[in-house]
């Protein structure tokens, strides 16, 4: 993983463009650093949903947070609606954040437990002094209705009186009231039951249309990501492996790591036997990432080139880019997994 490179960046109608993003964190006073994100580039077009997948610790959440400048990245640029966010001062950055919002994994702990739900959703409007109190109330009630929460109940109740799925709806309402163009969803359904997960995914699709949103959808579940995304980026240990239109990624995964991720998904059908070559071990530490392709320590196809030379993202046709010296060629027969 892999790799760097920018062959996949596009020019027209781009809402967000991230280039050479690096995020490092110091490890105490040891002089060592955690290489959470090590030079990744990607873009999202207006109205598009980009899915971002990878294992724990691959840097996908850090990527989402560094777009919000929470905290500011070590280096690289984040151009959003024409402005490079890394160059904005704090007050300009605060204003820019009204256009980009985030929803988090744990819907219950991301809401203030002591406040009424309607006030939680209202707060962004109050802080930014949008409209008068009557118009604010009207807007909040209509957004709450759009996400499927009864405004009357929201005015009377605190987060603990709602279920996990409902709390996620409330978080979504809070992110919508300022009318953002980009929503960064960080594992928004992984804490929910499958039945509720489906409700929230359908809701996000509906709201995306109604509010003309662009989504960055971060998750570890490839089936969930496929359902909601137009394009998908696969991350490993701080680098991008592969970026492709959603359908194409599943039909012909080119990076060996993508293939491993796909094969690990349990199929809800006992008659399907997936040819399964489990990947050995776990990702190495991002404090001392391996040289060359970062996946080489777990890759069955790795050779000397992979151990020394970092692969760059390159075009393999149809908007599909891969950072691998030995990309897979055989398409996966999806019939085998249906």
């Amino acid at each position: 993983m892999a790799g760097s490179g920018k062959a996949h960046l596009r020019d027209t109608d781009v809402l967000l463009r991230v280039e050479d993003l690096v995020m490092e964190f110091p490890v105490g006073r040891t002089g060592l650093k955690v290489n959470a994100v090590s030079g990744i580039s990607f873009d999202i077009k207006r109205g598009e949903t980009l899915g971002m997948v990878g294992e724990s610790g691959c840097g996908k959440s850090t990527t989402g947070r560094s777009i919000m400048q929470l905290p500011r990245p070590t280096s690289g640029s984040v151009v959003f609606e024409g402005n490079d966010l890394t160059k904005l001062d704090d007050s300009a950055m605060r204003a820019a954040r009204t256009r980009m919002q985030m929803i988090f994994q744990d819907p219950i702990s991301s809401l203030n437990p002591r406040r009424k739900v309607r006030d939680i959703v209202m707060e962004p409007l109050t802080i930014w002094k949008r409209g008068d109190s009557a118009s604010r109330g009207q807007l909040v009630d209509s957004v709450l209705e759009d996400v499927g929460i009864d405004p009357q109940r929201a005015a009377e109740s605190q987060p603990h009186q709602f279920s996990g799925g409902q709390c996620q709806r409330i978080s979504i309402a809070r992110s919508l009231v300022l009318d953002p163009s980009l929503i960064i969803c960080d594992e928004p359904v992984s804490a929910l039951d499958v039945s509720v997960q489906a409700q929230v995914l359908n809701l996000l699709e509906d709201l995306k249309e109604r509010y003309e949103l662009t989504l960055l959808f971060i998750a570890h579940d490839l089936a969930v990501v496929k359902n909601i995304s137009d394009r998908i980026a696969v991350m490993y240990l701080g680098k991008l492996c592969e970026i492709s239109p959603a359908e194409d990624l599943y039909q012909r995964p080119a990076h060996p790591y993508t293939r491993v991720l796909l094969d690990s998904i349990p199929i809800p059908d006992p008659t399907v036997k997936v040819e399964y070559a489990p990947v050995e071990g776990e990702p190495p530490s991002p404090v001392l990432p391996p040289p060359g392709c970062r996946f080489h320590t777990r890759c069955q196809y790795a050779d000397d080139q992979c151990r020394t030379q970092e692969p760059q993202l390159r075009d393999i046709g149809g908007g599909h880019f891969v950072a691998c010296h030995h990309p897979l060629e055989t398409p996966v027969t999806l019939t085998a997994r249906s």
Partner: peptide, 19 residues
């Protein structure tokens, strides 16, 4: 329960069945 699971063999943006 089974139908609410997103499946890899479904196209992207397939409407999920919910309970």
């Amino acid at each position: 329960l089974l139908q609410s699971i997103p499946r890899l063999d479904q196209a992207s943006h397939t409407r999920l069945t919910t309970i």
